[in-house]
Design a binder for these strands. Structure first.
Lengths: 338, 338
DNA sequence: AAATTCACCGAGAACGTTCTCGATTCCTTA
DNA sequence: TAAGGAATCGAGAACGTTCTCGGTGAATTT
């Protein structure tokens, strides 16, 4: 069994002083004699004292724990966001409890409903794509738990949100294809209903309209976010009588899937078909032809989300903020007709 | 400020019964009347009662929290291991607190020394490659904290460990190159001193000796684990007068780096130079020519590690176990001379 | 009918902290 | 020289649970 760690009482007993004094000496510098403080600190080190976070959490009603809920972690975007979150959490002395939903709505709900908010100071969430998540997230926000959404946010909930500029990124991606001479541009995207999906779709549509290009329903395919979905979508597009000459993929994984399918179909990527993705996953520069994309500021999204959550936690009445970070066009081989 | 959640006392007061009874009703089914139990459960739901884990943790000296310490998370291998860990943690009702060291020894030590073991039931660690980690891990193990190492383990510490079969994987990879006609086989690997590095190096060396092939010191390069290191190592190898005709990379990222460099040098990968990696990172099938590799059972390593840790936590006197899982050769274009 | 057992429940201590309220000593000031 | 103030510390309640111990009344046994 676990050995018992030394407590504040043990220190007090060893020095024949009160627990109050030890407690004070261990935290504040005021209201305690410098010598006493030194004594306490030395004895604490000697006894290998480690504060019991359950006890402090109980009385202060605040542990330094933040929960992070992600659809997946085996994925460039989310793991990079997490790294950003962790960077500011670490430098502020917060711990991160990570939950992965595997993009499963039921699991997400189960996780949220079983969270112990007594040992959690706040919550960072990117929702599962299958979830109509409004109800159980609204409940915990009503309970007063600070929540920040990022990337895949829930629209009708009033709390802080951090996103990339999906609309303008999509617009820019589409315009880039148009400028490179592509005219029949398809869009393979994620599940309908998500803010992210809708915003990118709208950016794509507006770019087409602005340039007076045709919008074909058959050229817009909703499916999953995976590489495999991208492969399937591309094959489906190529079965059409009226084939597109370019594809804007909602993310790089789908874009890569499309490249793979078109290579298998012996379609020359870049010439016969232009492709652009969204994310700037390292894979997009590894694949050949390399994939043009809109780089997302994933790391910064993590940092800003966590910073926002900490502000939220620290201030009593925090007004929700929405942060929208710009993407950046990266041109590679998959969209160059030259 | 946070609204106050209902406590066990509130339930007791609302029902005019004692807290003891409420506590019993909420947990055990024995020693409490079925009707009372039902009453309590209903009132708990009505008041939106959520157990306070700080309080239970304080009295039971066991929260259901496990800490996971990883060198990185933006990486196929570690994120997959984490997913495996999380899978068994989730189904056993444990939460995971994730710390990422960025492969920085000082940060790793800082994290470990500041862990609150009072709110942690155990620890899963893959050590930083720069760390001589023995001392501070030994300390917490002496304190009785259950620890399981995986992948990058610390050799001289007696506790449970889960690894892939690095030696045999490396042996098999090297033999595969030999069977495909490569004779001058280099090895680009990670920092010396790590068990993982040493085991793979030894497998490589033994395979060469067994087949009576030359071992050249210049063909063995120790550097980091990154793709960039792989690129640099490849360029360095190609500057030699006595150039190798194949490269066994310690992991796929370095293998991919090597492929990229050789492509830049206009060296035909597969023909002029054979390359094999280790991991089966999805990138290895994306890159062209695709990278042969030894597939690691990353997900299973996570599962087994967590299962072992739970056993360790549950049993008083648990004898440390070492689990070694086999890899699997995957042949792709980078090592086929055909 | 007395004795024994059983089912169920309550009182109160304990876990390791923090925090409020006073108490004590010593120094300063009029 | 008395009064006021500052510096320092201690007692004890509180946080929300669990757990041990014992008590009550009803059911069962002899």
């Amino acid at each position: 069994m676990r050995r018992h760690y030394a407590t504040i009482k043990d220190i007090a007993y060893a020095l024949s002083i009160s627990v109050s004094t030890v407690s004070r000496a261990l935290r504040d510098t005021h209201d305690v004699n410098a010598d006493t403080r030194k004594m306490v600190l030395e004895m604490a080190a000697k006894l290998n004292y480690k504060p019991n976070f359950n006890a402090t959490g109980l009385v202060k009603n605040s542990t330094h724990n933040l929960a992070v809920i992600l659809p997946a972690i085996t994925n460039y975007y989310f793991s990079t966001v997490f790294t950003g979150i962790q960077e500011v959490a670490y430098s502020n002395g917060y711990n991160l409890i990570l939950y992965v939903t595997n993009d499963d709505a039921a699991r997400e709900e189960n996780i949220v409903r079983n969270l112990s908010f007594s040992s959690l100071d706040g919550l960072l969430v990117s929702v599962s794509s299958k979830a109509d998540a409004s109800h159980y997230f609204q409940e915990i926000i009503d309970d007063g738990v600070p929540v920040v959404f990022f990337d895949r946010v829930v629209e009708n909930i009033r709390t802080s949100k951090v996103m990339q500029d999906d609309y303008n990124g999509a617009y820019e991606a589409t315009v880039h294809l148009i400028r490179n001479g592509y005219r029949k541009i398809a869009h393979i995207t994620g599940p309908a209903g998500l803010t992210l999906t809708e915003a990118r779709l709208q950016g794509y549509l507006d770019a087409l309209q602005r340039h007076k290009l045709a919008v074909r329903k058959k050229w817009i395919i909703h499916s999953g976010f995976s590489q495999q979905s991208g492969e399937e979508d591309a094959r489906q597009l190529w079965k059409l009588n009226d084939k597109p000459d370019a594809v804007f993929a909602v993310n790089d994984r789908k874009g890569i899937g499309a490249i793979i399918s078109f290579k298998q179909l012996a379609v020359q990527v870049g010439k016969e078909i232009g492709i652009i993705g969204f994310t700037n996953d390292p894979m997009s520069s590894i694949i050949s032809p390399s994939l043009s994309t809109i780089a997302e500021p994933a790391f910064e999204i993590g940092q800003r989300s966590c910073q926002l959550l900490l502000n939220h936690i620290r201030k009593k009445h925090f007004i929700p903020e929405e942060v929208i970070l710009p993407g950046r066009l990266i041109v590679r081989e998959s969209s160059r007709r030259s």
